[in-house]
């Protein structure tokens, strides 16, 4: 009787071990199939993009496509810098000082996707909208308003326009993105906290 009991537990032990090892294998085998479906290496590599900014004049605005997402480039003039500087950051829904939004006061780089529901806001060089007597961005979809630092001033958007890693290369070129940085979904609030761009 005792011998038989041992036999049974031995088979159970073997069954359990084998099943466990088999299950681990099936789990591991699923990994390549899952990773197969995430962005391929060429798409990852395309996360670093160089833009020529030497032709951009004072006050000029440009949209470039990076990772299939619009990126705003704005060469800020004196009026833009001054009007934005007058805003008290602590009064904002998503508080941020100018230093936390841009690397160089005369240049804004951010993702041009409205943080409400994803439209692309329009650049307004004179005034954002009636009652907002400063330049900035106006979102036509539900009336979101942002200043020239991409900070949310009014309307339904919950956050400032999202930032993207970038670096200036000898003043003529701008390098946007890193291989790892996904873009809009990341939402890092301060420019200082963004991953470093290799130059």
């Amino acid at each position: 009787m005792e011998k038989k009991g041992k036999e049974v537990s031995r088979r159970d032990f073997l069954t359990v071990t084998t099943s466990a090892v088999g299950a681990v294998g099936i789990g591991a085998a699923a990994i390549p199939f899952i990773k197969f479906m995430s962005p391929s290496k060429d798409i990852i590599r395309a996360g670093v993009m160089d833009v020529d900014i030497s032709g951009l004049k004072e006050g000029e605005f440009k949209i470039v496509m990076w990772r299939k997402q619009p990126v705003f480039l704005l060469k800020r003039d004196k009026r833009m810098i001054e009007t934005a500087a007058r805003i008290d950051p602590s009064k904002l829904k998503d508080p941020a000082s100018p230093e936390e939004r841009v690397k160089r006061p005369d240049f804004l780089v951010c993702i041009g996707i409205c943080t409400h529901l994803g439209c692309i806001p329009h650049f307004q060089p004179e005034k954002i909208a009636p009652g907002f007597d400063l330049p900035g961005f106006y979102c036509p979809c539900h009336g979101g308003k942002y200043d020239t630092l991409g900070r949310r001033l009014d309307g339904p958007p919950p956050e400032n326009l999202h930032l993207v890693p970038y670096e200036f290369i000898d003043g003529k070129k701008l390098r946007i993105g890193t291989p790892e940085f996904a873009g809009f979904t990341e939402n890092i609030r301060k420019i200082q906290d963004l991953p470093k761009v290799k130059v």
Partner: peptide, 10 residues
Amino acid sequence: MRDVNYGWLI
């Protein structure tokens, strides 16, 4: 073979 993750394996 080259760019897709584990594409070579599949």
